[in-house]
Design a protein around this nucleic acid. Structure first.
Lengths: 312, 312
DNA sequence: CGTGCAATG
DNA sequence: CATTGCACG
């Protein structure tokens, strides 16, 4: 019982007056942090000039999302009228891709999918676009890192868009070393190569909350996958120090905005979240970002979508 | 969200007027067969003298059944006011038994459980009784056959009650030979041993539709697990020829009554079923059977319960 | 907690 | 077409 990803104007959602994440972000506001509330904090839409809207969402199983009946599946993302949608953790197999493509709404005819060959129903990414890319590239070009379908790149006129699902360091941090010493540098090198010809935008689930502001309980998660010292340093040295800008943090230096809430302890209700999903951009286009935002009202996954409005 | 297995008088179910299995049993009635309709074909309840009511049900996962919200779970079996309930395919692990016992309704304090040690969440039986048995025995006493938790025996004053979940011959009939040359004879021998001291009642999912009348599509299932020549012959030679009486068939020589409908093709709606669940009794007590019946209106599993009312 | 696989029926 | 376990997050 899959649903077409269509939307009518009268389906558009009116956000409720007071979102829980506004109220509950932090009982004791600290260090000048403020809750990120998309209703109040986002700039007015651009009315003049050209812009492109990119979105990114870790869907935690696309087939499950397509069956999801609750408030807002992909329809809601489409409310955003994005030009390009990047997905992670589609958990599709190659054989599923064709049937899932049938669910795409009209206008988004260009879609590019990676699946994990190593483990079925694991990982997987997609770029879905109404703009036809100039070229598309799957993986990093390093066979060691390309068997899990974690990277897809689309080249557009004025930038490369790299969509990735970074490996989770896993229970017991058994993949931490692979992640920080192999994967992150390889991805970073790949981006620096691309950047020689055009600015690069990296999006996806980077599986790292960079700073204490990016996680609800920093003290309790110092050895949790996604918030180890090693991952946070790797995030800094491989991406930020190499000239990629965390667009959300640049725009909102003090905003507490999460993009992931574990299912395990009902974290979404109480806003016990992490910011794991990012838009990083080459310094050369950092000032062209009109809005880097989070859409925490979108359900259907343990992550919510994020968006980037870029002047072009 | 487990439910207590309680029942109130006003929860008692009124059966609908025309059950589908009456109408659809066989489009072309053949060979004098008649549909088994529990509303019309069952004898009046016993009013004088002592009787005991035994029931048996392959629940296909007891934890799933306890969550089941539809028309009738164990409450409905309890409508029957049984003295003893035998379950098969509980799919419990040893560690689950204590918590499931908490769901038992008052009055059924005696319960005896077997679980598969070989494969977790597989097979498993139980005897739940308001009469305290004189003794209880787990397995057949043959280690080769006792690792899958398929047999539990309770001794009562006037009979042994053997509750079993007979091994399915499996896809490709890969376990057919084990089933017919090892299991069935071992079970039969075990029963004959018990019978030296008391009459024996065997109940459970015997995983065999004995005759053509016991299956909706005999021609199409000649090499299907449960209706092979080998299993049917084994059923005859190991049980019937050894003096155990198929009580349902004795009472209703021409009734088409099924106890199992595969999920795969929506078989229950169209009554494409099999009779796989039985009460067999020692010849010496065959005439004490007041009613051997089927309760096809009870949902929650791919099998329905069966019952035996025995004068004691 | 929830996705998806695999084995089993 | 269901149940269960298991891996992964």
């Amino acid at each position: 019982t899959k649903r077409k990803l269509s939307i009518k104007t009268d389906d558009l959602i009116t956000l409720p007056q007071a979102e829980p994440w506004t109220v509950l972000a932090h009982k004791k506001p600290q260090k000048g942090w403020i809750p990120y509330n998309p209703r109040t904090i986002r700039p007015a839409p651009l009315t003049d000039g050209n812009s492109v809207k990119l979105m990114s969402w870790n869907v935690n199983g696309l087939r499950a999302l397509l069956k999801f009946e609750g408030f807002s599946a992909l329809e809601l993302a489409q409310r955003e009228n994005f030009d390009v949608l990047c997905l992670q953790e589609t958990k599709l197999q190659d054989k599923d891709v064709d049937s899932v493509k049938q669910c795409l709404i009209d206008g988004y005819e260009n879609s590019f999918w990676t699946c994990s060959n190593a483990k079925l129903g694991y990982s997987g990414t997609a770029i879905i676009s109404r703009i036809k890319p100039l070229s598309v590239c799957y993986g990093l070009g390093i066979p060691d890192h390309d068997s899990e379908g974690r990277v897809v790149t689309a080249e557009f006129d004025s930038f490369y868009l790299v969509n990735t699902y970074v490996p989770n360091s896993g229970d017991g941090l058994k993949r931490l070393s692979y992640r920080t010493t192999q994967w992150d540098p390889s991805l970073s090198n790949y981006m620096k190569e691309l950047e020689k010809s055009k600015p690069v935008i990296l999006t996806g689930d980077l599986n790292c909350a960079h700073q204490e502001i990016d996680i609800y309980n920093p003290a309790g998660n110092k050895r949790s996958a996604g918030f180890t010292e090693e991952e946070r340093r790797s995030f800094g040295s491989n991406f930020l120090s190499k000239g990629f800008v965390d667009t959300f943090r640049k725009q909102h230096p003090n905003a507490v905005g999460y993009t992931y809430w574990g299912y395990r302890h009902g974290g979404r209700k109480t806003n016990r979240g992490w910011r794991l999903d990012y838009f990083l951009v080459s310094e050369s286009i950092a000032d062209d970002v009109h809005d880097s935002y989070i859409a925490p009202d979108v359900n259907g996954s343990d992550h919510c979508p994020i968006g980037l409005v870029l002047k072009v």
